[in-house]
Design a protein around this nucleic acid. Sequence first.
DNA 1: GCGATATGTTCACAGTGTTCACATCGACTT
DNA 2: AAGTCGATGTGAACACTGTGAACATATCGC
Lengths: 244, 244
Amino acid sequence: MPQTTRSYHHGDLRVALVDAGLELARVGGVDAVGVREVTRQAGVSPASVYRHFDDHRALVVAVALAAQDRLAEAMVERIGTLVDEASALVDDAASLVDEIGSLLEEEGTSPDGATSSADALTSELAVARLRGVGLGYIDFALAEPGWFELALLTFDPRPGGGPAVMVDSEVPAPFLLLLDALDGCVAAGVLTPQQREHAEWPCWSAVHGFADIATRGPLVGQDPAALAALGRRVVEAIIAGLRA
Amino acid sequence: MPQTTRSYHHGDLRVALVDAGLELARVGGVDAVGVREVTRQAGVSPASVYRHFDDHRALVVAVALAAQDRLAEAMVERIGTLVDEASALVDDAASLVDEIGSLLEEEGTSPDGATSSADALTSELAVARLRGVGLGYIDFALAEPGWFELALLTFDPRPGGGPAVMVDSEVPAPFLLLLDALDGCVAAGVLTPQQREHAEWPCWSAVHGFADIATRGPLVGQDPAALAALGRRVVEAIIAGLRA
DNA sequence: GCGATATGTTCACAGTGTTCACATCGACTT
DNA sequence: AAGTCGATGTGAACACTGTGAACATATCGC
């Protein structure tokens, strides 16, 4: 922060506006982030927005990008806990394998069984990561529906209703997490390269669709525990569908 | 229609407004159906809306219900063609089975094979119906994105941002088509009752999610043929996931 | 035929995004 | 060190929106 004195100039109005928009969107969704409302929240004049953003839409996009960052953070956190749990199981199983191996050492047992079970364990880890992507996305949507609504908007690349060209320069972070997890699955042997191809779209469709249904669709207001269980069901179903 | 004369009273302004809204929404989406714009289209004064609808939102909901009907129509049409194709295959296969059966009649062949293959054929029919539900939904979304955006809105049951109670009185027709198709699958032995339980949500999530992604998401503007292929992939993946 | 009622209109108001001329500050030049 | 200039915030205005109240007119029941 360059200065804390309240002068005519604000110091860093742009981020202040985005923060205000974030706060408003958290409870009111995308409709709550308007030019006048945001400037009111920031204690500034409405027209000041146009010194930092071309348009109302540009302001919304900036807020949406911030919400998207929050989504990505929540996802990596969820992935971390799920992978940690899985790797704890892996460690337990590995020590168990070692124990059994040392017990059976006197006999001439082949180490093939150990390596194949190790493969199964790394597979489990890769699947846990993929699970984390989906569940992190869903949990964020349920926990912060306003931000979630915002985070979607940026995926929409039409600037003003034009011919809608695909964005290829800047892939959103949440989507990258999914791509990486899928690549990890083929590296771990969970998915064949053929199964991997375009697999991001079935995954994203199922997870995003559930989040949308639970957030603005017929499942709105349902019991959170039931929603979480349904979300797990959706994630397991689409993962099973990919491997079939 | 009570009268076609153009008098001070409009005859049936309510449906005229809904039709105008439908026409506007077709190209402009939900944002295009505003009180003033709709009345302009219908050649009538803005405040006349409030003789037929409580609110701007009520007008939008009425238009959305109409769009939902179009969606249901498109789905039953798609289901019909897919089921017809499948049943043609079924007939061909059945006649083939008969032929083979009559050829093998001289030998003492057991009819078990015929009945089990007949089972497989009815299964294929049930799956074709399920496929039709998903592909009909997706095709409609791709063909009429404006109407599709509208059709979703009605699934959102909040009247004014209240505590969002679940609608149980009037289940939308498109959703009923899915439920029936799933029940048909368990009747045909494709799905066990345990697999059937809550299966509507993974299905709806995947299909709706893909439609949303292809309509307002990162796949907007992609090659229609490629989108159709991806849609088929999504439908197959989620069906496989349910049966796994 | 006549009154009651349903339906459409006009006017007004609050709120929105947006623009433009103006005010003010910080920084760079000479 | 003074002065200029670009960057940033302000205030008033415009066009537009949804909405309500008072008014006008056509249709229906008696």
